Computed example of a mutant assay.
Amino acid sequence: MSESDRSRILQAIIAETEPHPHILGLWEQGSAAFGRADDLSDLDLMLLVEDGHVEDSHAAVERALQRIAPIVQRHVLPQPTWHGHWQAFYRLQGTSPYLLVDLCVLQASTTNRFLEPEMHGRALVYFDKTGWVRQEPTDPAPVAERIRARLEADAAFLDLFAPFVRKEVLRGREVDALGFYNGLVIPRLVHCLRSRYAPWRHTFGLRYLSQDLPTDVYAEVRDLLFVGSAADLPDRTDRAMALFRRTLAELQSLDLIQLLEETR
């Protein structure tokens, strides 16, 4: 991907959508909103439209893309999406396989705006006709409550099911053991670590871990993730559980709201 391709696509979309009477705003999120965009970044675009104008609005974006190059791949997420908005991914002929256009279309009445700066960075606003695109500090109290509830559930879940990794190794079911480890143990450990070091993004899973965790903690997680053989799984599980419990104990000694305030 070249920066010129990225810029040409963006400028074409702005030129097509800004005059559209039912399109109210356009902004970019993703790595660009954190100042981390590089030659491998895609385009994470949010399009704000009047209610009832999703179809004609994303069609306008597609016209802009077709002016650059033919659309060779178009993947529309099945409705309803987990976030409630229309979303699709596009790849253009002749561009890098990394240069996806990730388009999310929001209707003006939505309350789920993806504009929390602590989670999504500082949006790059290309136009905003109504002043709708506002980023204000997020109330930490509901976030703290969600973190507490999930940590409590995760601790109980791991006490019950982390031993299943060793059980499946003893049975010779190596794939089952790996499934329990990667599917049950690691996600809960990562959530706990995120809650401690990047609590606003506690639900982000493995994404951005190298930026969100201290270097030594990230190195430990990386080592736990790359398993050499099934015989390593019981020891890795024990280490993961020990790290989970240490981190959980530390979190329980902290004021989560204060932690969230400190990590905005």
Results as ranks from 00 to 15, higher is better:
H83C: 13
V217K: 00
D235W: 14
R201F: 00
L213H: 05
S195I: 01
L47P: 08
D128I: 04
H20T: 03
K129H: 11
S41Y: 07
Q258D: 15
G183T: 07
A59G: 06
S57K: 02
T95C: 13
Q73F: 08
R91K: 12
W200G: 01
D176A: 15
T247N: 03
E220K: 11
V61M: 05
H53C: 06
R8H: 12
R239L: 08
D39A: 12
S7H: 12
S31H: 08
D216W: 04
W82F: 08
L92I: 08
E136L: 15
L43S: 05
A37Y: 01
D255A: 02
E168S: 06
T130G: 00
L206D: 12
F161M: 12
H58V: 13
L260S: 03
L233F: 08
D5R: 10
T247E: 00
L178S: 05
N112S: 06
L251C: 06
L92E: 01
E152S: 13
R173T: 03
D139N: 11
I14T: 02
D128T: 09
V221N: 07
S2P: 10
L178C: 01
T17F: 03
M46E: 13
Q29H: 06
D44N: 12
L103A: 02
E18Q: 15
R134C: 11
G205F: 04
S229H: 07
E168I: 00
Q258C: 05
R207Y: 06
L48D: 04
G228P: 00
R63V: 11
Y181W: 08
A60N: 00
A141G: 10
R173F: 07
H53L: 01
T203G: 07
A144W: 05
T130A: 09
N182K: 14
L225S: 04
A88M: 06
L48T: 01
R245S: 04
W27F: 15
S195Q: 03
E118Q: 14
A219D: 12
Q135S: 07
R166N: 14
P78K: 09
E250P: 00
V105M: 04
Q79V: 11
R67T: 11
Y208T: 03
H83V: 06
T111F: 07
L40C: 07
D216P: 06
E152Y: 11
Q211I: 05
S4A: 14
Y218D: 01
R171Q: 10
P21K: 04
Q135P: 10
